[in-house]
Amino acid sequence: MDHLSELENKSIYILRESYNQFDNLAALWSVGKDSTTLVWLCMKAFFGEIPFPVVYIDTGYHFQEMYDFRDMAVQKWGLELILARNDRALEDGMGPESKLACCTALKTQALKDCIAEHGFDALLLGIRRDEHGIRAKERVFSPRDQQFQWDYENQPPELWDQYSARADEETHVRVHPLLHWREVDIWRYIQRENLEVSELYFARDGKRYRSLGCASCCAPVPSEAATVGDILAELETTSTSERAGRAQDKEDAYTMQKLRALGYM
């Protein structure tokens, strides 16, 4: 079996395991390439009918192209979309002056409220180990307590593909079906599956986005890559890290750890 099929089968196994083990599951979809791949893998795992909603966290600061892509994909794949948005923080003028406070209010809090409203006991997330050192420490099934805290010093053991799936009543579980994929795997898979992704990933005027988030906190990288093939060729030679354009990774050495301990993705 080839490498991409190996990755795909492992993800499908995890997705089916999650759907079997949890009563009220949802997928988190940022419309970025990873979570779009996640949604596509759900289409494959569930034979074209995803039996749970996808949640889009709207910070109000996203690119217009992201909203357009979202609406197109919802139509095409027949997705049940749930919007999570912290309107109160937005009305109070929350903005990206402090990354830690802003991400926590507009993403983490919006997600908390959404989980509470819909009673989700598990969330599928498209994070990958190679994105950030702190994500390299994650489990496939990762429990969160009532305060959303990630107890990264005392994670449960996870052997082979035996996932301890059931959350105690006061917790939800983060499920990471793409943890074992690398950035280059995602792009090769997008190419193989002929999967449509946001146009922001492709170069315009000598620049493209390698990782998508809020317009205010994402910087494009210099690039001439205008097709998936170009991007793959670029990844072969580049030594710039994928999240180099993401401001919240840089505020200080441990911002990601702090964000994630508070329930960030």
Binding site: E158, S164, R166
Partner: peptide
């Protein structure tokens, strides 16, 4: 031929 044992929800 491989297994885990759980107590409650914990391996």
């Amino acid at each position: 031929g491989r297994f885990v044992l759980l107590k409650g929800h914990t391996v």
